[in-house]
Design a protein around this nucleic acid. Structure first.
Length: 234
DNA sequence: GACCAGGCACATC
DNA sequence: GATGTGCATGGT
């Protein structure tokens, strides 16, 4: 990833704000409205956001299935069960010891601050929640924004590995700042939120479209992806 | 058998 | 502050 970034940073041509919306329109035309995130309840979305860290979603699905089968996809159950037991259930998602600790930290936070109730959490301002989530062990910027957007319907744009890969590959952004260093999470996020109308629905579907593209036309092993809907921007 | 996948914390310099 | 490394499974 880094070598690719270096190779193209000098030739990057940033898209104008209007074009960022055009990119979304192109993707939506190709893939249709996505209705994300794949999860039946907000709590399932939160758990999925932690389990999917650096992990293929197909493996996360197996872990979630295990949790459901044992009726353990529940904040109180998850808080009460032993780490060993929880780790065994989420094993297919990989990094199971790390993720067990992270899930435990999250359900503790959820219980201590919001009595494990989504509706209480939703009442809080996004900025406050984001700060709180980032203070929870194992929740970084992407996971926090995924939880805020997809579980709590707060207007936070999610930047993930797909977003960076696709937008660098198609040279649709500035991949480096004046000092030549790569953009950090906040800079990537700002690229989108400053160009798009603030909308939960739009942020939700835009990220979902990016993931669709990343899983189909714009895979990491491919050097370029001419057949994808964004190839005209190359 | 190597590489990759919807990150993050921590150690080291 | 920047960079490197460990964490682990399952699909290709």
């Amino acid at each position: 990833m880094k070598s690719f970034m270096k190779r193209h940073s000098a030739e990057a041509r940033p898209l104008k704000p209007a074009s960022l919306y055009r990119v979304y329109a192109d993707l939506k035309k190709r893939f249709g409205h996505q209705n994300w995130w794949p999860g039946e309840t907000p709590f399932e979305v939160m758990v999925g956001a932690i389990l999917t860290q650096n992990t293929a979603w197909s493996n996360v699905e197996k872990a979630i299935r295990n949790l459901k089968e044992k009726h353990a996809l529940n904040p109180d159950k998850m808080r009460g069960m032993s780490s060993r037991r929880l780790a065994a259930l989420i094993k297919p998602a990989g990094f199971f010891n790390v993720k067990t600790r992270r899930l435990k930290a999250f359900v503790r936070y959820f219980h201590d601050n919001y009595r494990s109730q989504i509706k209480l959490m939703k009442r809080r301002p996004a900025a406050v929640l984001r700060r709180e989530l980032l203070a929870v062990h194992g929740i970084g910027e992407e996971t926090a924004d995924s939880i805020l957007l997809y579980a709590l319907n707060k207007s936070q744009f999610v930047i993930d590995a797909y977003t960076k890969r696709i937008f660098m590959r198609h040279r649709l952004n500035e991949t480096s700042d004046a000092a030549g260093t790569s953009l950090d999470y906040g800079a990537w996020k700002n690229l989108f939120v400053s160009a798009l109308p603030r909308s939960v629905k739009l942020y939700n579907d835009y990220h979902a479209q990016i993931v669709m593209l990343g899983k189909t036309y714009c895979k990491s092993a491919q050097p370029k992806c001419y057949e994808c809907p964004l190839s005209k921007y190359l």
